[in-house]
Design a protein around this nucleic acid. Sequence first.
DNA 1: CCAAATTTTGAATGGTCATTCAAGTTTTGG
DNA 2: CCAAAACTTGAATGACCATTCAAAATTTGG
Lengths: 196, 196
Amino acid sequence: MARKRIRDIRNEELIEATIVTVHKRGYGTVTMAEIAQEAGTSAASISYYFGSKEGLMEATMRHLLRKLRYAMVAGYGQAESPHERLYALMDANFSDSLFTVPQCSIWMQFWASAPYSSKLARLHRINRSRVRSHFVAELSQLVPADQIETARLALQSYMDGVWLQAAQSDDPLDSASARRAAHRVVDLVTSRELVA
Amino acid sequence: MARKRIRDIRNEELIEATIVTVHKRGYGTVTMAEIAQEAGTSAASISYYFGSKEGLMEATMRHLLRKLRYAMVAGYGQAESPHERLYALMDANFSDSLFTVPQCSIWMQFWASAPYSSKLARLHRINRSRVRSHFVAELSQLVPADQIETARLALQSYMDGVWLQAAQSDDPLDSASARRAAHRVVDLVTSRELVA
DNA sequence: CCAAATTTTGAATGGTCATTCAAGTTTTGG
DNA sequence: CCAAAACTTGAATGACCATTCAAAATTTGG
């Protein structure tokens, strides 16, 4: 119990330091020493808790995925129609707790390096297919079968693209207006024929 | 002349090898030796031609930007209305010569690391603002003033998002259908009110 | 064909960094 | 209060890698 407690505190501190420091210095060039300094500890203790740098990165990605899943489930519970559930999917991605510059930034960097790390690739794949199936489930209630994929691609691309740009922003993000814009895109995609 | 020729040949070979190898091994972990091997030469010769690894990466990004600019200008020349010019903007990004897995992949990786390299950041910023102003110029002819930014964000996010996903694809890309899908998104965004 | 210029590369250099280790310090449970 | 367990960290280790260099090979221009 007490044993667990300290470990959990360190884990949180180190993951938070990882997010901040990777955003500041870049995934490719960040060092254990820099992360340790941000957390007010030594590089050696990161190895002690996470085994390796890769272990730390994996834990950090899990942390972000957990947050995303949590936001998603919360919104889904409230929604009462396919259309509202699409809103909820978007809202989860643009929720106050996730849609910040450092988090979008580190997310993009994980994304870029996922193909080269089997651990990250696995997490990435699982998340992606979960999001995809949520989209398909709702869209299939709202648009003709032959347009589901087009609509899904449009919505998911939009989501990804906004994150990509958010990651590069110099200013803090306005998550409420991001949600409003996302709702408009949902309306657009579900309200008319998509076929050329 | 002959002097120039050899240098140009090497530059092309090395940049092509860079694209292939970065895609294969990842921007963060690729080594000079790996790129050299792909090009059938030695790491030392890369230093000879490009001065440094960063120089090679910058040259590679310039090469991709040149291709994009070229594709854009070509399409723009043909287009005869704001709507067609929006198509042309999309088509440039999804042209046969650019919309390939390795190129989307390396592009995303440059993107992710641009904030941490002043050289890459500069190129990135210039490109982005050029694309943005093209979008704004055409959209301002097609949608009410207060909706230009929303429409631009939607289109540009979509474009970025599609590239992001393309970079992760296991299969070769279908650029023609990517262009068709992009046209549908353009139609969608320009054909109705966007305000909530 | 020759000498100067250019190109090529194997080996050496130097720096960076994750990881390990051993020696301490702190916390825990009784 | 005590001993064992958990935690911490400075320093050592070893791997990796971009870059440099000097010497050799090739190309060029005359």
